[in-house]
Amino acid sequence: MQFYGTEIKNRLLLGTAQYPSPKVLTQAIQACGTEIVTVSLRRESAGGSGDGFWEGLRATGCKILPNTAGCHTVQEAVTTAHMAREVFGTDWVKLEVIGHSDTLQPDVFALVEAARVLVRDGFQVFPYTTDDLVVGEKLLEAGCELLMPWGAPIGSGQGLRNPDALRAMRAHFPDIPLIVDAGIGRPSDACRAMELGMDAVLLNTAVAKAGDPLGMACAMVQAIEAGLAGFDADPMEPRDMAVPSTPVLGLAELG
């Protein structure tokens, strides 16, 4: 699997927020073997406090995917992306332009516009989007080489609210990497996303807020691997009525 030419083996992208401690975060990263972690930028106080976190994360050797979380306009997102590129030293950016403060739903109109600007500025954009096919097409036209549709609202842990739409995305964009971003709550959600043909899963809260973040991070990776293997093995189609699996030919007449 490649994202913008970078080979990825582990299909779990992990967020770094809300862990009980920086140590637990580092342990979870190492335990599950994720290769990509998301980070953010926030206001610095004089004297500096963010360096420790950043140094600790760099030491894991993970590829860094900075986000534009909290941005509500094109300009905010574009400026934040440029700031992140300088601090984190990567052209990758998880582009979020939030349109609604309750659902944290992306403002897809501003998202497409911001993606166009950032691609022009040399960024490799990971757009956090909805499962809308038309928006997906516009993002690809803007120069994105992959899409990150939501499963459910950020941090909700509801799983996949609209699996049919994700299946349609897979069918409509057969060669585009699709990463389900947001809403995953349990390993079964991650597994199902992969069974639908998604290429990877990005999650944060489901691991960070689990009673055992290390155990949950590992469970997510196992679920993702199982879902991927299941999709590759071409599952049977569901049927409305029962069909006996034991052969009826040669069945004894005993009644």
């Binding site: 967020g15 809300q18 930028l41 206001r43 979380a69 601090v87």
Partner: peptide, 10 residues
């Protein structure tokens, strides 16, 4: 002026 630094994120 905005001064930003690395922070945990999802």
């Amino acid at each position: 002026l905005e001064v930003l630094a690395p922070m945990q994120g999802g």
